[in-house]
Simulated scan of single mutants.
Amino acid sequence: MATVKELKATARPKAGKGAARAERRAGRVPAVIYGDNQPPLTISLDDKMLRQNIFAGHFLTTLFNIDLDGKKHRVIPRDYSLDPVKDFPLHVDFLRLGQGATIRVSVPLHVSGTEVSPGVKRGGTVNIVNHTVELEADVEHIPQFIEVDVSKLEINNSIHLSDVALPKGVKAVSRDDQTLVTVVPPSGYGEEAKAAGGAEGAAAGAAPAAGAAAPAAGAKAPAAAAKAPAAKAPAAGDKKK
């Protein structure tokens, strides 16, 4: 179930840059609610409260009930802008959600199991190929994140979108089976593997050669033994005569 938070808003009858600057000077942030085949509503929100929600994380996947003059509007943030220098919010766009609405959301990935991954233990590094996944979700089942478990991942192995179980009421937008996470080998891993393979091949080739040398040495010994009696026998007979 998606998280639903409360926000209090004030109607903002005037639009335009001048009115927006006046709202910011008063410690409020201009915003707009649109969608669901209804006219847009220009509102303003408390700057401090909005900052807390934005910087708490998952802002763009969190549902809000905006209380405007006693009437609540179920919305989800679709975009927001921050001051490039001071990082305070400048404006927010909210999408109004009707009953049973389905929307597209960009959901971040959370990687778990890194500390026990066999590939990481061998010196590999977890590489997040896609940090977010585009999903289509029922508004009541928008996930805060998608968890990817790499606890069994070896070096050069990957996890794809099809390997991840998506929550109820959620499906992937892309038809391609995206690569989400992979474990890349450490520097020099390829050269070490080649060297190890070459050493094993050399050892395997040297073993038969050593075995073949043994019979050759054994064959020389009988020949030498045969020559010794033949040379000594006549010499001994001559001396007795």
Rank of each mutant, 00 (worst) to 15 (best):
G198T: 06
K152M: 10
P208F: 01
V150T: 02
A202V: 10
A226P: 06
H141T: 12
G198D: 14
T132S: 12
D138T: 08
A225V: 13
A207K: 12
S117Q: 04
D69K: 08
G119H: 07
T114G: 05
K227G: 14
S187C: 05
A209R: 13
N127V: 05
V116W: 07
F59V: 07
K171V: 13
N53E: 15
G218H: 05
A165G: 08
E6S: 14
E147M: 12
P185D: 02
G218R: 08
P186V: 00
L7K: 01
T61W: 00
P39D: 08
A217D: 07
T114A: 13
L50Y: 04
A137N: 05
A19T: 09
L60A: 04
G198A: 10
I128Y: 04
A203T: 07
V183I: 15
N53R: 11
P229I: 09
G218N: 11
L135S: 07
K14W: 04
E147K: 14
K17R: 13
A235H: 08
K240Q: 12
L90D: 06
G198C: 01
G123L: 04
K239I: 12
P108W: 00
H110V: 12
M1A: 11
L82V: 10
Y189G: 03
T125G: 01
T61A: 03
N157S: 14
R25H: 09
Q144S: 14
N37I: 06
G237S: 12
K48P: 06
V126R: 07
D93M: 02
E191P: 02
Q52K: 15
P208R: 00
K152D: 15
H73A: 04
A56D: 11
